[in-house]
Amino acid sequence: MTTVGFLYPGHFAEDDFPRMEILLDAVRLVVNRTEVDEDAYRIDALIRTGSPEHLAAGVEELRRAGVEAVVWASGAGSFLYGWEGAHEQTAALARAAGVPASSTSFGFAHAIRELGADRVAVASTYPEGITALFADFLHAAGIDGAVTTHAAPLGSAAEAAAWGLDQVKELAAAADRPEADAVLLPDTALHTAGHEAELEELLGKPVLTGNQVAVREGLRLAGRRAWSPRLGRIFAAREAPPAPVSVWGEGRERAHSGRRAGPRDVRE
């Protein structure tokens, strides 16, 4: 059985992970909640959730659980650090955990590339300024096509966690564009587990959600493929699709190790 660990900020939609564990075969998802000093969708408060001291405090429990990889399961708590800063964040986490580490933001980058999507639409519950920084992160990750954004700004993760499926559907539909190859919902405080296929049926295209791609990223680092049609197209194939020919570019770092990577050195 593959065991993957997640550091999740606060008490909002962490119950998505046991739901996904049930939907996946022979996978154990261990969640350790980290401290949130202030539940507010402001840049300063969100950056503090991903501070080294907060992440380091949650690692030991995951180490004892025997995890094979660790993912920082926060959207804004990772992409707000910027491309280089997010690499430093996960490199420090990997050193502390003693296993490969990554974050939700890198999970989006890898999932988009696996789907072969060139243009994406972002359905965000963050304020517009924070949403724009997520688009900047995707561009830095090598998503060269158009990234359109739609923000339905909330004030906190607690507000996002209180949303029902109908509200999530409305947000995704409002953000979708005919030219978009996929729709992204980056907020890990939204409850989406097991609803991805329903969202994809509504929109007629792949949908990537924060907690879904966090799990996909952890399994990728552990070298494990998993299948569940209820978790959307990224989990719909028993075999990995051919890797896109595009690469991230020379000089960018690997999300899971912190070492400098060459142009073809990014692990798929």
Rank of each mutant, 00 (worst) to 15 (best):
T2P: 12
T3K: 09
V4W: 01
V4S: 04
G5M: 12
P9I: 07
P9D: 05
A13W: 12
A13F: 11
E14W: 04
P18H: 02
I22V: 14
I22A: 13
L23R: 13
A26Y: 07
A26P: 08
V27H: 13
R33K: 07
R33I: 00
R33T: 08
R33D: 11
D37C: 03
D39L: 04
A40F: 02
R42L: 01
R42W: 02
G50T: 00
S51N: 00
S51T: 00
P52C: 02
E53W: 05
A56D: 00
V59I: 07
E60Y: 04
E61M: 03
G66V: 02
A69G: 06
S74A: 10
S78V: 09
Y81R: 05
W83Y: 15
E84W: 07
H87A: 12
H87Q: 05
E88R: 13
A94M: 13
A97C: 01
P100V: 11
H110G: 00
I112N: 13
I112D: 14
R113E: 12
E114Q: 12
A117Y: 09
V122P: 03
A123K: 05
S124M: 01
S124D: 10
Y126M: 00
P127I: 03
E128R: 04
I130R: 02
T131Q: 03
A132H: 06
D136L: 02
D136S: 04
H139C: 00
H139R: 12
G142L: 05
G142N: 11
I143S: 01
G145V: 00
V147M: 01
A151V: 04
A157Y: 05
A160L: 04
A161M: 00
Q167R: 09
V168L: 14
E170H: 04
L171A: 00
A175L: 02
P178E: 02
E179G: 00
D181G: 13
A182Q: 13
L184F: 06
A189V: 14
A189C: 06
A189E: 05
A189P: 09
L190N: 11
H191G: 10
H191N: 10
A193R: 09
H195Y: 09
E198A: 15
E198K: 03
L208N: 05
A214Y: 00
R216E: 14
G218F: 08
R220D: 07
L221W: 08
G223R: 15
R224K: 15
R225Q: 11
R225M: 14
A226S: 13
W227H: 14
R230F: 14
L231T: 11
L231D: 14
A237T: 07
A237V: 09
P241V: 10
P241M: 14
P242V: 12
V247C: 08
W248I: 15
G249A: 08
E250F: 10
R252W: 15
R252N: 14
E253N: 12
A255H: 15
G258N: 11
G258K: 10
G258M: 06
R259E: 15
R260H: 13
A261F: 01
G262N: 13
G262P: 10
P263L: 06
R264Q: 08
R264K: 06
R264I: 11
V266C: 06
R267H: 07
